[in-house]
Design a protein around this nucleic acid. Structure first.
Length: 554
RNA sequence: UGGGGUGUCGCCAAGCGGUAAGGCAACGGACUCUGACUCCGUCAUUCCGAGGUUCGAAUCCUCGCACCCCAGCCA
């Protein structure tokens, strides 16, 4: 059960006092983009509340603006919510399914003298609205007769006017200090088909008019949204007060999630997709749920993250490092270990028989014997990580260097006896001798050497592509018009010459592994093929050794 | 300058008049055939500031200050 927060307290109290016998929440995305980690916070909150308090949570598409919404988004949203681990059962709804009722209620308000058709242009409406410090002016069309309003509104509905020609407005108070109450627009004319409602409508309701009434229709008890809608609450309540709605939902607001080193607004994410800065909404660098999934994040780790960050009302920025820590924590428990060499450097064991091949057992998890083990072939020629060898080792380097010894993980201790270089001075091969009795379980197995490195048999290894992903942005809080200049040019590095242990050849899509000493990797959902696997780096392992050049992160 | 909010450790976050939880980060140390994991220890005499009430205040009152949101026919 999630930790306590003010919303859980409110729900608990409402149940205890008998205000509600059961609670109903809802997750109301607009299908104008893919869901991101910020939505996960809302999903976990709304579905979590329903689950923990024996209520239910609806999935409702807030589809009131057909020019921005698409069927593709509707489908991706459903998939993302399911993937995250939540279900809505029979409770899948669309605000557009309430358009008839909403229309009837609009006429109801007109008849009550509380709504009118306005002919002012968008620009005029803006001018008449006044400013933050000055009251607005009433529209010259504000006092049309009920009959005229009714007729005009029906003609709007029937498509007799072009886009923008007229709007239906609630008649509230043009002098209200709350801008939302200065005769808000309820309906606008849009001659466009709707992804769910089809071509039935020429007029579409605004969010403020549709949302609360949809909540009321569905019997929502706690309508939870983000802080920027706080000013809308008086309007939300005005509609409920003035319409014959069947239920009285209550709106509560919480602080939206902000994450460092990425961008979160749908507008920016859409721009990244459209401008080709990323490969799509599910690019592993995107903070979208589909992106995180492809990156290798587990639903469990994201849920855990949402529990850890809590729910409050103060603006906050969560460190990306916390999200990363959450996947590590989950994957450390469940990801089998494997050896993979990302930047191969050949290593030849001079005193090892040329044709000999041995197989060593390697535990799939050092702390979990129940996860079993696998055989790893070993021979005279291996590949080791280029970074694990230094001709002139820096202070503190525990890996291989001329004359030094190192343990080959799950195998022998080797001693470097020499190197070979090409004409440019680049090391092309490392020569070693091995200690025959030092293999795991051998007579000298207990001998201590300061370093342990991973390796893959040159004869048995399998070629693989590995994509190293890093943070999307290079600054914690990218903002302003030049936010794109904060994009990390090294957020994706593709390595095509990697060598992985044979057992990885047939790994299936979305299988996750820890490549020992490197990080957690996930078989790419779209591009991996049997025999030619493609791995995405989810997150690196923690590295308490700076290696000389420490990257500052938070 | 109108209205609505928020201010507790680097980042989150408990606390609701009885004398500052927890997580992440950081820093020491132990362990280690992953420089991983795990483990042990350190980490707010102080709660945006200043007054006041009280035996006692992060919690109540007053006055300030800072930051966020609102002038879409977006949500």
């Amino acid at each position: 059960m999630a930790p306590a927060n003010f919303l859980r307290a409110i729900v608990a109290e409402d149940l205890k006092s008998g205000k509600h016998k059961t609670i109903v929440t809802r997750f109301p995305p607009e299908p104008n983009g893919y869901l991101h980690i910020g939505h996960a916070k809302s999903i976990c909150l709304n579905f979590g509340l329903a689950r923990d308090f024996g209520g239910r949570c609806h999935l409702r598409f807030d589809d009131t603006n057909p020019v921005k919404e698409e069927v593709e988004y509707i489908e991706s949203i459903k998939e993302s919510v399911h993937w995250l681990g939540f279900g809505w059962g029979e409770h899948l709804y669309y605000a557009s399914d309430y358009f008839d009722q909403l229309y009837e209620w609009a006429e109801y308000l007109i008849r009550a003298g509380k709504a009118y058709v306005d002919d002012l242009t968008a620009a005029d409406i803006r001018d008449y609205r006044g400013t933050l410090t000055e009251p607005g002016k009433e529209s010259p069309y504000r006092d049309r007769s009920i009959e005229e309003n009714l007729e005009l509104f029906r003609r709007m509905r029937d498509g007799e006017f072009p886009d923008g020609a007229k709007v239906l407005r609630a008649k509230i108070d043009m002098a209200s200090p709350n801008m939302n109450l200065r005769d808000p627009v309820m309906y606008r004319i849009i001659h466009a088909p709707h992804p769910h409602a089809g071509d039935k409508w020429r007029i579409y309701p605004m969010y403020d008019y549709a949302h609360g009434q949809s909540d009321a229709i569905e019997g929502i008890t706690h309508s939870i949204c983000t802080l920027e809608f706080e000013d809308h609450r008086p309007l939300y309540e005005w509609f409920l007060d003035n319409l014959p709605v069947p239920n009285r939902p209550r709106q509560y607001e919480f602080a939206r999630l902000n994450l460092t080193y990425t961008v979160m607004s749908k507008r920016k994410l859409l721009q990244l997709v459209q401008d080709g800065d990323v490969a799509g909404w599910d690019d592993p660098r995107m903070p979208t749920l589909m992106g995180l999934r492809r990156r290798g994040y587990t639903p469990e780790s994201i849920r855990g993250f949402c529990e850890r960050i809590g729910v409050g009302r103060s603006d906050s920025w969560i460190e990306m490092g916390l999200l990363e820590e959450c996947v590590r924590e989950d994957l450390n428990e469940r990801a089998p270990r494997a050896m993979a060499v990302l930047r191969p450097l050949k290593l030849v064991i001079e005193n090892y028989p040329t044709d000999k091949v041995e197989e060593f057992d390697a535990a799939n998890h050092p702390q979990k014997p129940e996860m079993g083990s696998r055989k790893i072939p070993f021979c005279r020629e291996l590949f080791i990580e280029r970074d694990d060898f230094m001709e002139e080792p820096v202070k503190g380097f525990k890996r291989l260097a001329p004359g030094g010894e190192v343990r080959l993980r799950n195998a022998y201790i080797v001693k470097c006896t020499g190197i070979e270089k090409d004409s440019t001075g680049r090391v092309t091969e490392v020569r070693c001798t091995y200690d025959h009795d030092s293999h795991t379980g051998g007579a000298a197995a207990g001998r201590k050497v300061k370093g342990v490195i991973h390796w893959v048999s040159a004869r048995h290894g399998v070629g693989a592509e590995v994509r190293l992903y890093d943070r999307l942005c290079v600054v914690p809080n990218p903002s302003g018009d030049d936010w794109k200049s904060c994009l990390n040019p090294a957020s994706a590095e593709v390595l095509k010459e990697c060598m992985v242990e044979p057992s990885l050849a047939t790994a299936s899509a979305e299988e996750r592994f820890q490549f020992e000493r490197q990080g957690y990797f996930c078989v790419d959902l779209a591009d991996s093929r049997p025999g030619v696997p493609v791995f995405n780096r989810t997150v690196t392992l923690r590295d308490s050794w700076g290696g000389g050049q420490e990257t500052q992160r938070s």
